[in-house]
Design a protein around this nucleic acid. Structure first.
Lengths: 112, 112
DNA sequence: TTACTATATGCTCATTTACTCATATTAACT
DNA sequence: AGTTAATATGAGTAAATGAGCATATAGTAA
């Protein structure tokens, strides 16, 4: 349990999770939406994956990250809480807009 | 939300919360149950209080800490999750036994 | 093959955090 | 007033963490 809370105890990681509520995303899309360095995002994603919150898959050169279904199953109350609260993050509206734009304009050439 | 997760991202603090599921406790009782230094416990308690998870009150020379009812109200799903998972901490059974012993023997002379 | 793109990772630096000791503060009791 | 007990806090230290740069790795495409 501590590992999960450690993963959740960082604002950038919460912002990443808030984007993944709606879509799977690749690293460069997240980079584009959150304006953080690529290496930084990659490490945050590794962290979230190591804690069991995310899983990943590859398509061509892109690594996609998504919410881990096992995590949702095994942490249902926490997940309900997160789904509600992630949308209340101060940066959520803006991040969400960028995500929509990024997806609709296929900014990374990585549309699934 | 980050502040709450930061407070929860530390094992000693989770152990403290697990003890407080059943009773309010004073600092020296917690010290007795968890075998941590008094200053250390005092700081963890301050941290949990600052994040809104605990509240405190004084009786004579003792400071009692308890789960903050507002926190429970405002974070219901998270609280349900915590109530379940705190009891699954590896140290829980042992900590719980010590808490029971501490309360029944009135080790700090601080029984309410 | 070579060049290019996306991602992961080694390294370093700065910041934060947890721990400890010593001391201050507060309350109770003689 | 002086002593004792409980708690909080200042200061120092060590460890963990996040950020950034440079580079390695892996997959694609020419």
């Amino acid at each position: 349990m501590v590992e999960i809370f450690k993963a959740l105890a960082e604002e950038s990681r919460l912002r990443i999770l808030s984007l993944l509520l709606e879509n799977d995303m690749c690293v460069c899309e997240i980079e584009n939406c959150l304006s953080l360095k690529q290496s930084n995002i990659s490490r945050h994603l590794s962290n979230l994956k190591a804690s069991g919150i995310l899983e990943s898959y590859k398509k061509a050169q892109w690594s996609y990250y998504k919410i881990n279904n096992n995590f949702i199953q095994e942490n249902q109350e926490l997940w309900v809480y997160l789904e509600k609260r992630l949308k209340e993050l101060p940066s959520y509206q803006e991040d969400y807009k960028k995500m929509k734009k990024c997806k609709s304009e296929n900014i990374c050439n990585c549309l699934i």
